[in-house]
Design a protein around this nucleic acid. Structure first.
Length: 220
DNA sequence: GCGCAAGGAGAAGTCAAGGT
DNA sequence: ACCTTGACTTCTCCTTGCGC
């Protein structure tokens, strides 16, 4: 049975892979420079065995300062950067707004959370999904927003997700806050044209277990 | 609940010997 | 001469118990 890959596990695994690769780079650079382990160790103020283990990916915990120093000795610069990958950890407010929607759904509807996009290796996921059978089988993806701070960024993100997973309707679930209501009043034209089903009709259809018939915004 | 100290486990690091 | 590896020591961190 497949186990869920937690962000923290994924991060550790990537760091280990990165370190292993860095060790290989170090070895290549050292050999190319005609330097022995002993010579590099002496200059780097460490032991040759420790360097050897680093080059072979056998050291799991190591300081960035050490890695930088060792690489500098063999003529390598090291760069660490962080970049977006997948969705961040869901916060309490987001769980709450999803729960508020869940309890409004008709009992015949199927509800799921954290639904991955259907692309191998893609770490993004819809916050939720609803599936029904009336009047015929239908499905809707749910994207929950607790704080709309950038309408254009939201439009871009939703656009990319819909491009990669265009099946079914889209429900933009927004937490009922003063800030979000203000943001919805000045929604970008792109988002306005995307959501065609009025909020009340959307919620009424879901409460009755019926196909909402299109994309819509729900404020809860 | 919080801070501190002691003990233990495991990882990190060094030394030295053997192999190529 | 250099690389690799096993044995040993040192260090760090976590857990537990205790007192406030």
């Amino acid at each position: 049975m497949a186990t869920h890959d937690r962000p923290v596990d994924r991060g550790r695994r990537k760091a280990r892979d990165l370190l292993k690769r860095l060790g290989q780079d170090h070895r290549q650079a050292r050999v190319a420079a005609g330097l022995s382990l002993r010579a590099v160790a002496a200059t780097s103020q460490t032991s040759q065995s420790r360097l050897w283990r680093f080059e072979h990916g056998l050291i799991e915990h190591i300081s960035v300062a050490d890695v930088g120093a060792w690489c500098a000795v063999v003529g390598l610069d090291v760069a660490f950067r962080g970049y977006p990958s997948g969705d961040p950890l869901r916060d309490r407010a987001q769980r709450d707004v999803l729960e508020r929607l869940r309890v409004r759904l008709h009992a015949n509807l199927i509800w799921r959370t954290e639904v991955p996009l259907p692309i191998v290796g893609d770490l993004r996921a819809w916050d939720g999904a609803v599936m029904g059978r009336r009047p015929k089988p239908w499905a809707a993806r749910v994207e929950a927003e607790t704080n709309i701070s950038d309408g254009q960024a939201l439009e871009r993100r939703l656009g990319l997700k819909l491009r990669d997973d265009p099946v079914g309707h889209l429900i933009l679930l927004v937490a009922d806050t003063r800030n979000n209501r203000a943001a919805l009043r000045i929604l970008t034209p792109g988002l306005q044209s995307l959501f065609t089903v009025p909020p009340r009709r959307m919620l009424a259809a879901l409460s009755e277990g019926l196909d909402p018939g299109g994309n819509g915004i729900i404020v809860l």
